[in-house]
Amino acid sequence: MKSRIPLILLACGSFNPITNMHMRLFELSRDHLHQTGGYQVIEGIISPVNDGYGKKGLVSARHRVAMAKLALETSDWIRVDPWESEQDTWIETVKVLRHHYNESLRLLQSKKEFMKNKRPIERATEDSLSYQHSVLPELKLLCGADFLQTFKTPNLWKEEHITEVVEKFGLVCVSRAGSDPAQHIKESELLSKFQHNIFLVKEWIQNEISATQIRYALRRGLSVKYLIPDSVIAYIAHHNIYTEESERKNEGDLLQPLKLHSTPVNPLND
C-alpha cells in the first residue's frame, strides 16, 4: 500500500465559545482528506487567539481554552493548544503555523532518537512503524467558508504571510452550500497559483452555529443545548462568562492586526 502523508490540522480563531460547528469542521476535513487516499490525519489542534487580538466581546483566553478543553474531552484526535493564547501579545497566524510545524518536527526527532536507543531486535519489529514516523508530516490550516475572503480585507493580512500560508503549509477550507470558494480562488492570482495546496471540503449538513449567535442566545437566556457541549454550557453558567458587560469588551477598538499593519505607511504610496 502506498504510504499516506501524515497530516495535522490546525484551526485558529476566537472560539468564543467553541461550538459543535468547530468540531464538525475537523470531522468533515478528516473524512475528506482520508477519502483522497493520500493523507492520514494524525492530529487536530485548536488554537484560541490571544487576548491581545482586541476583538469585541472576546472573553479571557483562560476561559476560552478551558471551554475548548471540555468540549474536546471526548475526542481522541483533536486537542487544544494554549501556546498562541499564552504569548505576550497577539501574533500572526503564520507564526502559529510555524510554531506547530516545528513542534511536530521536534516530536518526530525525539521519536527517532527513542527508536535508535532501542535494542536492534525490538527495532526490527517496529520497522514499519519507524518508517511511518520518518515521513515528514504536513501541517494545514483548517478554516471555514468565509476565511478565504478575509485575505482580501485590507491590512488584515500581510501579503507575504498569505503566500507562506498557502505555499508552505496549505489550507483546508470547509465550504457551505451557497458559498463558492472555488470562485474566490480563481479570482486571486496567488490562491490560483497554489490551489494544489488548498483543499475544498463540501459540507453535507448546513451548519452555521456561529459563536456570535451563541452569545446572543446566552445573553437572552435562550437554550443553546445541542449546539455546544453540555460541559461547556455548565462552565459558562458556572463562571457567568457571557454577559452584556463581556460583550462590550474591546468595544470600539481596532483589531490588533489592523493596528499593526496599517501603522507603517508604505513610503512608495506617499
Binding site: 449538513i205 448546513q206 451548519n207 452555521e208 452555529i209 456561529s210 449567535q213 442566545a217 449546539l227
Partner: peptide, 11 residues
C-alpha cells in the same frame, strides 16, 4: 429557528 439546522435522519 435562529440557527439553520438540517441534520435530517436521512442524511
Amino acid at each position: 429557528e435562529w440557527i439553520t439546522n438540517d441534520i435530517s435522519s436521512t442524511k
